[in-house]
Amino acid sequence: MAAGQVIRSEWTKIRSVVSTVWTLSLAVIVTLALGALISALSRHEFGDMDPRARLSFDPTSVSFAGMALGQLAMIVFGVLVVSNEYSTGMIRTSLAAVPRRGAFLAGKVAVATALALLVGMATSFAAFFLGQAMLGPLRTSLDAPGVLRAVVGGGLYMTLIAMFSMGVAAMLRSPMLSLGVLMPFFFLISNILANVSATKKIGQYLPDQAGSRIMRVLPRIGDDTPYGPWGGLGIMALWVVAALAGGYAVLRRRDA
């Protein structure tokens, strides 16, 4: 099957599965709603903050507060795109139609990544403008130093989260197992490792901890992280490459 046909086939699969459409919609809704709420609360409580907190107050980062839950939906999207065919048994039919397994996985990842990038960028810009509206006099503007980088980075971060999840799902080949690994990793283990002094130097190199730095304009007081925003996103990208390479290795060596 030609590359164009593989792309069209994967696009048809994604748009025809209701769960994948809903997860992307949920990513948008949760990110915008929670970001707007946190921004409104931050505006109300700013006067009660201590001087140290005011100095590190980052209006751009506050508007992205909803990303913490929005990425959950992106993780589910990435997992479902890859593992749905394993759970239904359709993977045998797909691999019979596209025997070149590298082309099969590349087509699936390319289509899902393009869709995640589109949704991620739209969500990031919408979250920024909505959050700034809620912040009122505390708001910043898109042309302020570092802000555009952070907003574009927010869209890239959501895209990379989805891609990393695709790689893990390709390795584990089960939606339940993949989510059972990814959810605790991102929402429990990563935060613990990054916030405990004994493991902080390890935790800061995990994909979400490194990648999320791209969305901050003002560094936190006392932050001694040895890389900058783009460096953090680069570290996250390396995790994505490793996950996808692992997924391809499993797909190539194991039967459907």
Results as ranks from 00 to 15, higher is better:
Ala33Trp: 08
Gly228Asp: 09
Ile29Thr: 13
Val151Lys: 05
Asn84Asp: 09
Gly155Trp: 05
Leu118Val: 07
Val250Thr: 10
Ile161Leu: 02
Val168His: 09
Ile29Met: 11
Gly203Gln: 07
Gly102His: 08
Gln71Pro: 04
Pro137Thr: 08
Arg101Pro: 12
Ala68Gln: 15
Asn84Gln: 11
Phe125Lys: 01
Ala210Tyr: 11
Pro226Lys: 04
Asp50Tyr: 06
Met1Trp: 05
Met163Thr: 08
Leu72Glu: 02
Asp143Lys: 02
Val21Gln: 15
Ala97Lys: 14
Phe125His: 05
Lys13Phe: 00
Gly232Lys: 12
Ser39Cys: 03
Val111Lys: 14
Leu238His: 11
Ala68Phe: 11
Val18Tyr: 14
Val98Leu: 04
Pro145Ser: 00
Met163Glu: 13
Pro175Ser: 12
Gln132Asn: 15
Leu80Thr: 06
Leu138Thr: 03
Leu148Asp: 09
Ile161Cys: 04
Pro137Val: 01
Arg101Lys: 14
Ser124Ala: 13
Leu142Thr: 07
Ala249Phe: 09
Val196Asn: 07
Ala68Asp: 14
Ser56Ile: 00
Leu218Met: 08
Val62Ser: 05
Ser63His: 10
Met166Trp: 02
Leu233Ala: 06
Gly222Arg: 00
Arg139Lys: 14
Gly136Phe: 03
Met171Leu: 02
Met49Cys: 01
Val82His: 11
Ser197Lys: 11
Ala243Val: 03
Thr140Val: 02
Ile38Ala: 06
Thr23Cys: 05
Gly246Gln: 05
Lys108Gln: 12
Pro51Trp: 02
Gly234Thr: 14
Gly231Arg: 12
Leu206Phe: 06
Leu238Tyr: 08
Pro59Glu: 01
Ala96Arg: 14
Gly228Trp: 03
Ser178Phe: 02
Gly35Met: 04
Gly102Ala: 03
Ala3Asn: 14
Leu182Arg: 10
Leu244Gly: 10
Ser212Pro: 08
Ala3Cys: 01
Leu160Glu: 12
Leu218Pro: 05
Ile75Phe: 06
Asp48Met: 04
